[in-house]
Amino acid sequence: MHRLELIGVEKEYGEKTAVHATSLCLEDGVYGLLGENGAGKTTLMRMICGILKPTRGAIRCDRIEIGQMGKIYRGMLGYLPQEFGYYKEFTALRFLRYMAALKAMPEEAAEKRINDLMELTGLESVRKQKLKTFSGGMIRRIGIAQALLNNPEILILDEPTAGLDPNERVRFRNLISSLGKNRIVLLSTHIVSDVDYIADEIMIMKQGRMIRRGTQRQLSDSVGQIVWNCTVSEKDVKDISERYVVSNIKNRENGAELRIISRTKPMPDAYPTDATLEDIYLYLTRKEEEGEV
């Protein structure tokens, strides 16, 4: 079991602050990192992987700075970048062998591991095909396979389900859930359902800041009653959508059923309902000018 600590970690690029001072402590389990584009998720993950050096602060693994640990830390790491780079002319097998060589894995162990991962990710039948023939989902799967090659104790996955179809997404969720038992898994995503069921803890980032973290229950308790259902006439839908964050619209015969995210009751006949993680995420990441929420 490892303990990953981020202490006042900050990243600046010139005038812009991509990640404001962030302190975290991660132990075994699955952590979901939610945030819109530009929130700072990828920058944070790159700093944890040691690719980017923080402008301020420190990242420690078991109380030792990751920069000092060097290859020992990198040996514990499995990383899937958001923009996953690969050589198009490589076959799946050669690519995984190359990654195993980059990770300095012994050859025999690498071959066995590659065979196991090919089967796990459903790429056994295409092992000798070139990566340029792969679909987006298959590329993502090979990316996940390379991240798992060295049986990492710290797994960092940046938008791992991008391009995966629903079946693949479910398969992936089950895989990650099983992996989280003995390792730190940090996965970032836009897709709330990716982390809804499997994450032990959810972290929400907005404009470079960690605005909320906790279990789904804790997040729900922290925001209070924010979701309301109501039925309105179709002509009122546009006006209401401009005034409130509407997370769902169902058109019915007698009007439209709206799911509104708001701190206060939006209309007299609205009734409260339980917030899902998606509702909480929408509420916490709403734009300031989106009126009463």
Binding site: R46, I51, K71, P81, G85, L102, A104
Partner: peptide
Amino acid sequence: EMGELSCTCYFS
């Protein structure tokens, strides 16, 4: 292509 991924491996 592989720059980001390579530097999380054995060699920095």
